[in-house]
Each structure stands twice: as C-alpha cells, then as structure tokens.
Computed example of a mutant assay.
Amino acid sequence: MLVKLVITTLHHRQAPLVELTKKHFNIDLSQPAFWQQTMKRVVEDVTEYKQCM
C-alpha cells in the first residue's frame, strides 16, 4: 500500500529527485521493484536490531 502511494505521488509530480536519481545513479524510483527491495531491507534491518536488544 505505501509503495503504491509513493510511486503514484512521484509519478504525478514528476519530482526532480526522481529524475536526478535516475540520471546520476541509474536508479528508477518510479519502479515498484525498487521500493519493494528497499522496504524488504528496512524490515531486515529492524529485525536484526530488535534481535540485538
């Protein structure tokens, strides 16, 4: 749900950040795969952090 909202917002606004990220880092922020991978990593990091406590 959050991923879809972010992608929709970025797509409609044509944010300069999207363009700059694609141009300089070859990362397309408008692609669901990017956000899914990012959220997966966040969940993994939080899980690891919680295990350390």
Rank of each mutant, 00 (worst) to 15 (best):
A15Q: 08
T21E: 15
Q31W: 05
I7Q: 07
T21D: 12
I7E: 04
I7C: 01
T38A: 10
L20F: 15
R13V: 02
M1I: 04
A15L: 01
K40S: 08
M39A: 15
Q36H: 11
H24Y: 07
M53R: 07
T8K: 10
I27E: 04
C52W: 10
W35L: 02
R41I: 12
K22G: 09
L10W: 02
M39L: 14
T47W: 11
T8V: 00
A33K: 06
V3P: 04
L17N: 09
L2M: 12
W35V: 08
E48S: 14
Q14D: 10
W35Q: 00
E44L: 07
H24T: 06
Q36Y: 11
P32F: 02
Q51N: 02
Q51Y: 13
Q36A: 11
K23P: 12
T47H: 14
V6I: 11
L17E: 14
E44Q: 05
Q37V: 09
V6F: 02
Q51W: 14
H11I: 03
M1V: 05
L20S: 09
H11F: 03
P16G: 01
A15H: 01
P32R: 03
E19S: 08
E48A: 13
V42T: 06
D28H: 08
L20K: 01
E44R: 15
C52L: 15
K23C: 01
I27V: 10
D28A: 00
C52F: 07
I27D: 04
D45M: 15
F34V: 00
K50S: 11
L5W: 03
F25N: 14
V42P: 03
V43H: 05
P32Q: 00
V18I: 03
I27K: 12
